[in-house]
Amino acid sequence: MAAAPSNVLLVDDEEDFVEMLSLRLQEIGETVLAASSGKQCLEILAATEVDVIILDVKMPGMDGIETLEKIKQAHPLVEVIMLTGHGTIESAIQGMKLGAYDLLLKPADFGELVEKLNRARQRKQEQMERIRDAEASKP
């Protein structure tokens, strides 16, 4: 099976943070897209195939929870990892109930982030395969 191009989307209003984390992820071979708002995130999703989104809970304008709800409506198979500070853990947990795959406490340890990213991507691929199998077995 050819490795499908796998896209990671980083959503955070702190631009320096998004930039640095993108550079690190690219360094280990990831293809990374970046958005600095919930709105921008949804625009990118509408145009591009994305596997995993790393989404900040606290953003001005549309916050992480609202963004998550819109993502799950339009793209239910995309996996989302919530990034949260100490003050917003409750929101992140609410995000898990709304279908987020996992949460990460800021500032996150890079190794942990990569691990969760890989697991989320794996789950997405398994879901996709199941759907393909089901479709293939249709008479």
């Binding site: 702190e14 943070f17 640095m20 984390l21 690190r24 360094e27 800021k106 500032p107 890079f110």
Partner: peptide, 13 residues
Amino acid sequence: NNPLAVIQDAAGW
């Protein structure tokens, strides 16, 4: 915490 995350990832990079 936010600038700290930037420093951490810049050094990590």
